[in-house]
Amino acid sequence: MKKNLRIKLVFIALILFLIYTIMLNVVSGSIDLSYKDIIQGILGKRVFTELEHNILFKIRIPRIISAILFGIALSISGFLLQTFFKNPIVGPFVLGISSGARLFVGLFLLTNITIGFIKSPLITIFLAATVGSLLSMLLVLLFARKVDNISILVVIGIMIGYIASAGTDFMIAFANEHKVASLVNWSMGSFSGISWSMIKLSAVIIIPTVILVFLLSKPLEAYLLGENYAKSMGIDIKTFRIVLILLSSILSACVTAFAGPISFVGIAVPHLTRLTAKTSNPKILVPAIILSGASFCLISDYFARTLFSPTELSISTVTSFIGAPIVIWLMINRRKRI
C-alpha cells in the first residue's frame, strides 16, 4: 500500500510540474505576456494583439509542443535502450546513435540525393535519420557481442559518435556554404524554428510509437530478468529484440531529424524517474517517463532561452550540464558492478 501511495504522489507531482513548466514557457520570453493576459485571451475576454498572437501561436506554442514531443521521444528511446542493455548508463546519444542519424541527415542536406518518389524534404530527413540511427545501432550491437563490459561499450558508442561527426565535418568541408549554414543551424540542437508541419509529422511518428511501447509493458517487464528467463516465459526473443531496437531508433531518429542531436535526456530522465518512483514496472514507468521527459525538455528549453537572454543557448548545452554529471554519478556508484 505504501508503494501505491508513493506512485500516486509521484504522478501527481509530475503532472503538476508539467503544467508548471508549460506555463513557464508560455509566459516567458522577449515579450512579456502575463498569465492573466493569456487566460483572459483564451477565454475571449481580451483580444490578443497581432504580435502577441504570432508570438504565442507561431513561436511559443509550437516550441512547447515540440519540446514535449521530443522530450518524450528521447526519454522513451533511452528507456528502451536501458532495458535492452540492462544498464542505466546507455542512451541514444552516448551510444552514438544520434550522431549516426546526424551523419545521414547531413548526407541529405549537403548533397542533392533524394529518395525516389518521396517529395517531402521532412520525410526524407526523417528517413535519413532513421537509417543513420539503425546503422549505428547495428554497429553498437556488433561490438556489444564482443564486449560484455558496458563501460567499454559506452566508450565505443562515443567513438562511433566521433566517427559519425567526423564524417559529417568531412562533408561540410566540401559542401557549398549556403547548405552548410542550414546543416549547422539544424545540428545545434534546438526547438526553435520548428514549423507546424514538422510538429504534425513528429506527432504522427512519436505518439503511436510511444503507445506501442506502453502496450509492450508486459514483455518489457519480463525482459528485465534477462533474455533467457524472458524466453522461458514465452517471449519470442529475436522478434522482441528487433522491435525494441526499431522503436528506440525511430524515436531518437525523429528527434534528431527535426531538432538535431540532443544529449543526455535519454539517460537522465528514465533513470531519475526510476529512482523517484522506485519501481521498474513499465506499466508505471512508461507513463511516468512520458511526463518527466516532457517536463525535463521544457525546463531545459526554458533555461536555454532565458538564462542568457537575448542570446539563446542550444538545448544540448543545457541538457549536457544537467545530464552529464548524472552519468558520471551513475558510473561511479555502479563501479562495483560494471
Binding site: 528485465l224 516465459m233 526510476r274 521498474s280
Partner: peptide, 27 residues
C-alpha cells in the same frame, strides 16, 4: 545458472513474473 540483478524489483515482483504465461495482454 545466470545471476540476474534487475533494478528496482522486489522479490515479490520477480516471483510475479512467473505468472507471465497466464496473465492477460497487460500482465
Amino acid at each position: 545458472t545466470e545471476r540476474i540483478s534487475p533494478e528496482m524489483m522486489t522479490a515479490e515482483d520477480v516471483v510475479a513474473t512467473g505468472r507471465y504465461p497466464h496473465t492477460n495482454h497487460f500482465g
